[in-house]
């Protein structure tokens, strides 16, 4: 895996050949601005549907293991 990544990053090094000092970044190719939504509530998913795919749930909530000591970064 490491070898694959290195070869890909080596390949990507070729971009440094280009002088992009005065070039703007392109993040979006769509020539319009943000779409805005009116502040009107719409029904979402029922609790049942929201939890339908949960690996574990209880009392309407998603159940997850606790952070155990020494895990916090």
């Amino acid at each position: 895996m490491r070898g694959h990544l290195d070869s890909i990053l080596d390949y990507a090094e070729q971009l440094s050949e280009l002088d992009t000092e005065d070039v703007e970044v392109t993040t979006h190719v769509v020539p319009v601005s943000a779409l805005l939504r009116d502040d009107i509530a719409q029904p979402g998913l029922s609790n049942e549907l929201a939890l339908q795919n949960a690996p574990a749930s209880e009392g309407g909530a998603f159940q997850v293991p606790k952070v155990i000591d020494g895990e916090a970064g």
Partner: peptide
């Protein structure tokens, strides 16, 4: 919330 099953897990809302 107190877990009905007595589990030590967290619950996400």
């Amino acid at each position: 919330a107190e877990s009905a099953l007595g589990s030590d897990d967290s619950h996400m809302d």
